[in-house]
Amino acid sequence: MFSKEYLLRFLIIAASFLCIIVSLSYFFFQRDLYAEWLFSLNQTQGNASEEQSFFDRLFDPGRYDPHSNDIWGGKNKQDPLNIVKKSSAPQYGSTAGSSINKHHLRLRETILAQLILMDRYGMSKEDAWRIIKGLKIDGAFHKYEESRFINELLWFKYQDDRKNKSIISALKESGSALTNQKYTFFEDLYSVGVSYLLNGNAKDAKFYLTQAYNEWPARGRAFGNVYLGLLITHAVAGNHKEFLTMIDHIKTYYPDWLYVETFMPDIISLHQIYPDSALLHALHGRMVQNVEDYASASDAYQKALHTGSLNSLVTQKVNHWLSEIEKDKS
């Protein structure tokens, strides 16, 4: 065996060489996940306005059906944002609109699975990101779905730190990037609407949330969130008429009204963003009155009345709610 020492010499030298190469690679090219996210986000925004070539469109597995009745057919197909402004129905992937292709569906399901694993089972976002990046699914929708994932991650971060203005600002950016995609659909509109609401831009929030409200395909719990979001938007925008109409049906359209702990932190955060909104105080009062927290409800109603900006109809309504509290107490 020892007569073959030159073989051993080769093994030792080559293995050492490989170790040095790997060490240098790790030292000089260590992976920066955060930079990858930002890069991905920038790529998504940058590509939004780029026109696809004929062959790109032809072989894009996520391409639309020009004969279907959905809004992606016709002359506006290259300009999704314009379509949104025209109050069309971006229903890509919804049951009512054009069907999502199987590769896109697989990618979306995988990303959703990673989000669930992260949220409930403590999976790290680095691992989730690696799994998503490692999927060998080609298609123009890949960047879009990655942007959605980043947007969801930002929402997770927001849940942990609601006062962080940089996160709120980033949410608006990531949400806006989603609306510029040809795959944009109602969930994205809701997401960007809420991010505008958190950024103090009630006008744009109303625009997107109204779109989401109109396009939402079902009337379940998820739609309830859209309903509450739009109601809050009308409140902070001072739309008394819409506020009164919607608040009367809150229990019907918002099934989670009983679980104050889920939505009240958001309303409290919004008080800091819109401190002068009397309708928001009125909404706060009504929501806590629904769960029989009379003390908090009275307090909120008093705040609403003291601002002096309520119109007569809402003032009358708030007084009526106050009288209901007195009645229930007695």
Partner: peptide
């Protein structure tokens, strides 16, 4: 070895950066 490269370094064969991708294949 390949898993280490793809998970811990930028030298991933499917990297969008062509130099990183080339080095990933090379190493």
């Amino acid at each position: 070895f390949n898993l280490f490269l793809s998970r811990e370094t930028e030298l991933w064969v499917y990297s969008s950066n062509k130099i990183h991708s080339f080095l990933g294949f090379f190493i």
